[in-house]
């Protein structure tokens, strides 16, 4: 564990808490993409199947359980409890355009052709693009609530911090995982446009709106 990974994990946890808080406090999931959230639940489910097969640390197990539980908690709030507030008209990104190619790629490019490993690879690839329906939704409506933009910033920062973690691990532990690194870079790049808007607008106290 290094400082980059720890802050990355904390940013990830913070993002999830921010999203749950936004939905709970405003009693609304307006502006949140249910499709991105469904894919995140799928990401955690397929990646953390190793909870059953091997134990790493109490920290690892606890965080994994929190991530899985919170992703399904978010789905529960969005699709059951506050279903009426779900903005499905603006959540029109086609999930199959991401899930199908990602599934295909995880069969073709992986570290080991075994079920758990393919599912892990699938989750890594899917995570890298799972935010697209959310970003697409913001581009359709042209704006995002400030709390939603904080959520996205924390969520995007997490993988950027993981890149620093991988650089650190490469130099100090001789560890390198090409699949995770490439997917992590793709994931971070997808947020760049959002990061720019967030820093130039939200940090100056304005609402996140897209240029017309």
């Amino acid at each position: 564990m290094n400082v980059f990974r720890l802050t990355g994990d904390i940013a990830h946890l913070l993002a999830i808490i921010l999203l749950l808080m936004k939905i709970w406090k405003t009693r609304s999931c307006a502006g949140v993409s249910g499709k991105s959230q469904m894919m995140f639940a799928l990401v955690f489910t397929t990646r953390y199947l190793d909870l059953i097969t091997n134990f790493i640390s109490l920290y690892n197990t606890t965080m994994k359980m929190i991530f899985i539980a919170s992703s399904y908690g978010t789905l529960y709030l969005m699709f059951l409890k506050f279903r009426a507030t779900y903005d499905s008209n603006h959540d029109t990104f086609r999930m199959e355009f991401l899930v199908v190619p990602v599934a295909g790629l995880s069969f073709l490019v992986n570290h080991d052709f075994s079920p758990l490993e393919i599912l892990w690879t699938f989750s890594i690839y899917l995570e890298s693009v799972a935010i697209l329906p959310q970003l697409f939704m913001i581009s359709k409506t042209g704006e995002a609530e400030t709390i939603t933009s904080h959520y996205l910033f924390a969520l995007g920062s997490y993988r950027a911090l993981y890149i620093l973690n991988w650089v650190y691990r490469f130099y100090f532990e001789g560890f390198f995982d090409l699949i995770a690194v490439v997917a992590g870079c793709v994931q971070t790049v997808l947020y760049c446009d959002f990061f720019y808007l967030y820093i130039t607008k939200v940090w100056k106290g304005k609402k996140l709106t897209l240029p017309a």
Binding site: D50, I56, M63, H111, Y162, N165, E173, F175, F176, D177
Partner: peptide, 10 residues
Amino acid sequence: ACRKKAKDEL
């Protein structure tokens, strides 16, 4: 190589 170590990441 070293793939197994990634399993300690989240």
